[in-house]
Amino acid sequence: MASAPQLPLFYNGLEPLSSQQHGDWKIRGQDTAPFLVGQHAIPVTVEEFPLVQRFMPIVFSMGDDAIPLALMGLNEGVNVFVDDAGKLGENIYVPAYIRRYPFMLARLRPEADELSLCFDPSANMLGAFDEGEPLFAGDQPSEATKQILGFNETFEQAGLRTQQFMRELREMDLLMDGEVTIELQGAPQPFVYRGFQMVNEEKLANLRGDQLRKISQSGMLPLIYAHLFSLALMRDIFARQAERSGTPAPVELPTF
């Protein structure tokens, strides 16, 4: 995900972090995430499924290169977990994709083998500030930068394991187009949400013994069920949207 040629979600640009150019820069803490406002679907890794499924539905994007997504809203432009300033609600799990911003590992050239620590230059949490954690100690990365690099390396490794999980789902033909129908008393018709993929429970139940044993031993099976159990939260997200701005209109989730 990090090495894709197009800019990922949230990022307006990418610049490599350098002691020559950013030697006097600091990173300061933020109590809001304005880049989250209006973002309703956030990529997640398989390691996060057990925690994410307690708070948000986990679905898969459309297309052959599908990725797991945590839904923070059912309609495009709606995030029920942040206020208008981007302040996150308390006692929720914040996906690692959000926590790594404004940093990420990326290839500086398409032919490069190594990934470099880069950042979004439009982010207002980095700069030559008087306050904050220094990014460098002389010409060497500071302890804060080493921790940031470590987190991003762990995230990249989790992304590779997530890609493998998705390959396995496709090879076993377990994904299908998803649809969630929510009926409200007094509504003239149900609210139907489409535009995502989900695991086909019928195909999962009919897997051969060797296939079922394989995904059980590999750890895939509990991840699949975490996804399936999380879909019940669609109704909770729907209710939160209705409380915030009236009953949401049924729409297709955008293709990622």
Rank of each mutant, 00 (worst) to 15 (best):
I148M: 10
L221R: 01
R208G: 15
G132L: 09
N200F: 02
N152A: 13
R194K: 10
R213L: 11
G219M: 07
R208S: 15
N124P: 10
H227N: 14
Q163N: 12
Q140A: 15
L204C: 07
E183T: 15
P141I: 10
Q147G: 02
L223P: 01
K203H: 13
F136L: 14
P188A: 09
H227V: 08
R161N: 04
P141D: 09
Q163W: 07
N200I: 09
I148N: 08
L160V: 08
M172H: 15
K214I: 11
V192G: 01
A205H: 03
L223C: 10
V199K: 00
L221T: 04
M198L: 05
Q164H: 14
L212V: 01
G138L: 12
R161P: 00
M166K: 06
S218W: 05
N124E: 13
L184G: 15
G219F: 05
R170L: 06
P134I: 12
D139R: 11
T145A: 12
Q197V: 12
A205C: 00
F151T: 01
Q185E: 14
P141H: 08
G195D: 00
H227M: 05
R208N: 14
Y193E: 04
Q197D: 09
A205I: 01
F191C: 08
L221A: 11
Y193R: 01
I215V: 05
G186I: 09
V199D: 03
K146L: 15
E183L: 04
G219A: 04
D130T: 11
E183C: 07
T181P: 03
L223E: 03
M172S: 11
Q140R: 13
G150A: 10
A158I: 01
E131A: 14
Q217W: 04
E201T: 12
G159F: 03
K214S: 15
A226K: 03
H227D: 04
Q197L: 10
V199A: 00
